[in-house]
Computed example of a mutant assay.
Amino acid sequence: MSKNLTTGGFINPQQLPLEQVCLEVAALLKVTLKQIERLELWPHQIWVKFVEGRGKFISYRRLPLWVEQGIAAINNCRDHSSLKLLAEALSVERDWYQDSNDSELLQQWDLTISLWRQAWGEKSQEITQEEEQLKPLRAHQQAASNWLQSWQQVLHFCSDCDSLNRLATEIEQQSHEFADLPEIMAALRQILQQRWLELSHTKVADAV
């Protein structure tokens, strides 16, 4: 079953700013704040309790805050995968009032969807640009990872300390290319140190 912004976890009604919700509910219902006794933020609707005793349910989607929350959810996406997942929820939201005959409501909802569509397009473009900018860095990181794995295999088959010293010199010469990746260099130093200890222990054992 397709999920909307709340059931999909993109908006948590319990975390909405109550003061802003109260102001927008009062504006929507054309009442003063003094006429509202309290609000209850239910999972899918707002329960409005009036001072005079009666109550009424209001949809979150009738409030300007809902537009802001949708845009905030879009801006919180960090990659195309999360943006695509959100798009599925927005498509459910888009059709929310498709059976309504309220022209004013439909006009307002069309504006909401238009604003979300614009924000989604801008975010998608932003993520694409960021990914393009990161491509050289990711390629560099992958090359460093491959370099580390290759040396790990070579060092594994190194059989004596003299050979290890020569290899360490060669590694030092090559390492300048990846000096900007301290985690790679630290990992290789650890491998070298471990292999040195292993060969040293072997040498001592042979001498005994």
Rank of each mutant, 00 (worst) to 15 (best):
I36W: 00
L16V: 06
D79R: 10
I58G: 02
L39Y: 01
G9V: 06
P43W: 10
A72E: 15
L16M: 10
E52M: 15
F57D: 05
W42H: 08
D102M: 05
G55S: 14
R94K: 13
E40D: 13
E24A: 02
K56G: 03
R62Y: 12
K34G: 12
L23Q: 07
F57N: 05
V48C: 11
F50S: 08
K84G: 06
W66H: 04
L106M: 13
P17C: 11
A72P: 00
E88C: 13
K84Q: 12
L90F: 03
L65R: 03
L23M: 08
E104D: 09
L105K: 04
E24F: 02
V67S: 05
E93Y: 03
L105S: 02
K84R: 13
H44P: 01
Q107C: 13
A73S: 13
Q107V: 06
G9W: 06
D102R: 05
V21D: 09
E93P: 08
A89Q: 03
L85P: 01
D99Q: 11
L33M: 08
S103F: 06
P13F: 02
D99N: 09
C22K: 03
I74S: 01
G55L: 10
G70S: 02
A27C: 05
P43S: 12
L106A: 11
P43T: 11
W47Q: 11
L63C: 07
Q69A: 05
I46G: 00
R54F: 14
E40R: 03
H44W: 09
L86C: 02
L86M: 13
R61Q: 12
H44Y: 12
Q15F: 04
S91F: 09
W109V: 01
V25K: 05
R38H: 10
F50A: 07
I11P: 11
D102S: 04
K30M: 08
A27F: 08
E19P: 03
G9N: 07
H44S: 14
H44Q: 14
V21K: 01
A73Q: 01
R94M: 07
K34V: 09
W47R: 10
W42D: 08
F57M: 10
N101V: 07
D99G: 02
A89V: 02
E37P: 00
A87F: 10
